[in-house]
């Protein structure tokens, strides 16, 4: 730490530490993210309308919107979205629980790490799709095999994140706890947990991202509902509009659930001062 004051150090008075982030960003920031996709969509719409492109393989936004509305009206779309979201949620939950537990055990005990880590690292390099036949044989073609596949995808980043976070907790920080005579449990609660929280939040986000990836693989292995089913169905029946609609919905759901994770963890991570928040200026 240098003696040079952070530019923000003077401004906030008592109780003023909280609104830093909001003040620097304002409401304009989140909206700017819409400029690129909306702009591209408008350009494409204009290109198709003016006859520059025929829009047969990539439908213009208006037609995709109509597709989505029709799917929604027929009651199919809510069903598909629900099926997919439910699978991701279940797989994510299982993956997070198992990844956190094993990661914490391996992080806490050298012996456990030496026993389980090489195996887990080995399994990690197995391409995810390779599990599909095995899971189908073990668990059947219905929900359990799909959820198992998704939780495998979620498990690895969460396991690695927890293990890495525990391993990288500074010995110097632990010593502060020792000086204040914290017991084992208090050390975990007051030093270890808050110290690993940022890395853990990031691991959960990575895990969730992989969960969304794996749900498609899972639904490709034979589903009668779900957004992945819409993709397969769109391909087999030659409905590119439906495929693009499903992809868009995936994008929205992925971003939405990620945002949910971020906003749940944000109050706990207010203390962080990251480049992402302030920019490099």
């Amino acid at each position: 730490m240098t003696a040079i004051e952070h530019p923000d150090a003077r401004a906030p008075a008592v109780g003023d530490a909280l609104p830093l982030r909001r003040r620097s960003g304002g409401w304009g920031r989140p909206l700017i993210g819409f400029a690129l996709p909306v702009g591209l969509a408008l350009l494409w719409e204009a290109a198709v309308r003016s006859g520059l492109a025929n829009g047969r393989l990539v439908a213009p936004p208006s037609r995709i919107a109509i597709t989505i509305v029709e799917l929604w009206r027929s009651g199919d779309l809510p069903l598909h979205i629900w099926a997919t979201v439910w699978r991701v949620a279940a797989g994510f939950g299982l993956g997070v629980i198992s990844g956190t537990t094993l990661g914490a055990l391996a992080g806490a005990s050298v012996l456990v790490r030496q026993i389980v880590d090489p195996t887990i690292q080995g399994l990690r390099s197995v391409p995810s799709i390779a599990w599909v036949p095995l899971f189908i044989l073990w668990l059947g073609i219905f929900e359990p095999s799909k959820i198992a596949l998704i939780s495998v995808g979620v498990f690895f980043p969460v396991y690695l994140g927890v293990l890495g976070a525990i391993a990288s907790v500074d010995r110097k920080t632990i010593e502060v706890g020792r000086i204040f005579r914290l017991g084992r449990f208090a050390l975990v609660r007051r030093i270890l947990l808050p110290a690993i929280l940022p890395a853990y939040a990031l691991a959960l986000r990575t895990g969730l991202g992989l969960g969304w990836m794996f749900v498609v693989a899972a639904e490709f292995m034979g589903a009668s509902e779900g957004l992945g089913y819409l993709l397969v169905d769109g391909q087999q029946l030659g409905k590119p509009d439906q495929i693009i609609a499903a992809i868009l919905i995936f994008a929205c759901l992925g971003k939405l659930t990620d945002g949910l994770l971020v906003s749940v963890s944000a109050p706990l991570l207010r203390w962080q001062d990251t480049v992402a928040e302030q920019g490099l200026s």
Binding site: M1, T2, A3, A9, V14, G15, D16, A17, W271
Partner: peptide, 13 residues
């Protein structure tokens, strides 16, 4: 006057 700020907002001293 710095009671409620985060450590990162303090100078070294």
């Amino acid at each position: 006057d710095k009671a409620e700020v985060w450590p990162r907002q303090l100078s070294g001293g």
